[in-house]
Write a protein that binds this DNA or RNA. Structure first.
Lengths: 111, 111
DNA sequence: GATGTCTACCTCACATGGTGATGTAGACAG
DNA sequence: CTGTCTACATCACCATGTGAGGTAGACATC
């Protein structure tokens, strides 16, 4: 019923996916994901920040505080080499999973 | 890291996907999903049976005990009209979600 | 100078639901 | 009588998303 559960297991992929194209800070990551998905995925702050912390702890991301000029300070995230490897692995995993779901749910030509 | 979390939110879709092509019992549902996915998805009994119970309670499935000839009795499941509607809705939802993930993680032509 | 609204970060109680182990039982083989 | 396959089921555990709440800076408006 919920689209919510679909997110599980893909949050790291989404974050790494936007960060592999350049350094961004948290709030901006959320915007990028929202934009690129055509507003279909709206990152909740409740999982975004915890997920960023997890990825940093696992060494997939490196972070640094920086002044944002206007407004509050920002925490910028940059993807590491390990993070890029994680992204590639998870991306392949996701593609195969998606393929599998499609295989299972597809209409057989004639049953 | 886990492929495990990817399953969340897709189990109903997988089950309804194989049942829309005909009546099956639980054990058989697991086999079908395994086969159709090229063994990539291996339904654990820990989620399969609870998921079947959920779907039955929600009216998406109708079930009946029947003798299996050889071996223990089997519980056969048949998809209802409501279940078919659920399948169609979730299938569309899934496709859009998958599309979104691909959009977010895709390589931009030139950044 | 108090209120409102952005940006920007963070945390937490709660609920969902998959994982892996374990249990029961029938049928059949060796 | 032990093992293996079918066939169903349940449970403690854990990961993680949801939704709400909190802090704080900057700026506008009245």
């Amino acid at each position: 019923m919920d689209r919510s559960q679909l997110l599980k297991g893909t949050t790291a992929l989404l974050i790494l996916g936007v960060l592999k194209d350049g350094e961004l800070y948290g709030y901006e990551i959320a915007q990028r994901i929202r934009e690129r998905s055509g507003a279909f995925i709206d990152p909740g702050e409740g999982w975004l920040y915890p997920a960023l912390h997890r990825l940093e702890k696992h060494g997939a991301l490196q972070a640094s505080w920086r002044d944002g000029g206007l407004g509050p300070r920002r925490r910028y995230y940059r993807i590491t080499e390990g993070g890029l490897r994680t992204f590639n692995a998870q991306s392949a995993e996701w593609e195969q999973f998606a393929r599998s779901v499609r295989l299972v749910t597809a209409q057989p030509a004639n049953a």
